[in-house]
Lab assay of single mutants.
Amino acid sequence: MIVFVRFNSSHGFPVEVDSDTSIFQLKEVVAKRQGVPADQLRVIFAGKELRNDWTVQNCDLDQQSIVHIVQRPWRKGQEMNATGGDDPRNAAGGCEREPQSLTRVDLSSSVLPGDSVGLAVILHTDSRKDSPPAGSPAGRSIYNSFYVYCKGPCQRVQPGKLRVQCSTCRQATLTLTQGPSCWDDVLIPNRMSGECQSPHCPGTSAEFFFKCGAHPTSDKETSVALHLIATNSRNITCITCTDVRSPVLVFQCNSRHVICLDCFHLYCVTRLNDRQFVHDPQLGYSLPCVAGCPNSLIKELHHFRILGEEQYNRYQQYGAEECVLQMGGVLCPRPGCGAGLLPEPDQRKVTCEGGNGLGCGFAFCRECKEAYHEGECSAVFEASGTTTQAYRVDERAAEQARWEAASKETIKKTTKPCPRCHVPVEKNGGCMHMKCPQPQCRLEWCWNCGCEWNRVCMGDHWFDV
């Protein structure tokens, strides 16, 4: 396979590697080409510095992935760790964990309700045991953590790749202090920090972006993250068709209702045909949960890209028209025109101005929308079919299609509260000796007794199943 190397943020060049090629071997190839010592090179990928003893497969490097290699003399205490030698983080029983690669970060837990604080980093599902597709590297999971809308060759929703760059020099040479644990960490600028490894760059702020994971991409090709779309790892039924499908869209209502993408497309087109989208002054033209839940309008309007190009163009047109109407304007009634106009409040005669090729020149009556006339309008008909009709959803289907309910059931079956801080902690095999993952707590306690870890627990039921 081919990976592209950008040395000291210059133009990239291809390097041929195998899945079992080590990072140090990659350094040696680059060092020979650039005429520099291999031990002064640092390989940066997806916000993480890659260790010498890791392989291309370990690092989730795919065909035509772009890695950054910078030349920086080692500072005291760094060289041993980078070589894969006596790194205290690798000691058996050590409590410190390697910062998780962005290629394996899962933010789907952050669609849980606000009262489930902490689960994004504490609760991990076991539903990723799908067998890898044919042709994928051994052991590589097909679980997708992110979804994007690819405006490039795909023109559809695709699995996405999370990447990070330095907000100062805009190069992907920043190593994160810690990985993101929720969508806010990724979507809110300057929320996460790190250290830029580019020479002479003092940058410390992280800037995240997404790429389409279905095809090789260049540095400049980015895609918009659709953070309401998630892999259906909890096997929730769709609120409309009641099938279990994946991926799904999880509405931001209190129940976190789930809808499959085909039904979401149908829901949007139906509402669009009836012009029953909601115009929100802050958000724009949007839709609420299909069950009509309060405070559930979709905030990231790129989710409506699921409509496809033709329907999305209609959505944008109707949204612009609705904006004009909300501002007190009118639409030209001549067939084939429909231009938005903003006449004076007491102006009865409205002319669709033909300047700049935008208007048709038609003069019409503001009251009856017919060709302009003197005197009273002959008839004014009330528009028919403008009443909002509820999208029919079966109550039982709505009850079963809740992301929140599956989460709470998982928590109930696989977790116990920490005796000190009461945060839910998952036990997935292993011994009875637990350690609270909350940095402010870190209590060592017994899963069996529910009390602080002691010699009695150690001698009596340390390794009970």
Rank of each mutant, 00 (worst) to 15 (best):
D185Y: 01
K48L: 03
C436D: 01
K413F: 15
S286K: 00
S141G: 12
C95N: 12
K161I: 15
R104C: 13
V111L: 09
T415G: 07
E300K: 05
A138C: 10
P419Y: 03
N190P: 01
A320F: 10
S9K: 03
H68E: 06
T175F: 08
Y318E: 02
R366L: 09
G135W: 09
N52E: 11
Q400K: 15
S141H: 13
F381Y: 14
T168R: 08
P281S: 10
Q78A: 15
R305S: 10
L174T: 06
I239W: 02
D274I: 04
R191T: 08
F463V: 01
Q25P: 01
A363I: 15
G94Y: 14
F364L: 04
A134G: 11
E28N: 08
S145Y: 04
G213N: 10
Q282G: 05
E399I: 12
R392A: 12
L174F: 15
G85A: 12
C446Y: 01
L301R: 06
I69L: 04
V111I: 12
I2G: 06
S101Q: 11
S167L: 06
F210H: 02
Q57L: 07
L112Y: 11
R33A: 06
E399F: 10
E444N: 15
D184P: 06
R97G: 14
D106E: 10
D394Q: 06
S223I: 07
R163P: 02
C449K: 02
C431H: 08
N232P: 01
S218C: 11
W447N: 05
F4A: 04
P417Q: 11
Q282E: 12
F208A: 05
R156F: 06
S181T: 12
D126W: 05
D394C: 07
P153L: 07
L50Q: 03
I236H: 05
Y312D: 02
Q252L: 05
V423E: 15
Q165K: 14
V5S: 03
V186Q: 01
P424M: 08
E98V: 10
I44F: 05
Q57K: 12
V186M: 02
N273D: 04
R33N: 05
M192W: 02
K48R: 13
A31W: 01
S167K: 13
K435Q: 05
E98I: 08
D464V: 15
C59I: 04
Q438E: 06
V105H: 12
T237G: 11
T237V: 09
R170C: 08
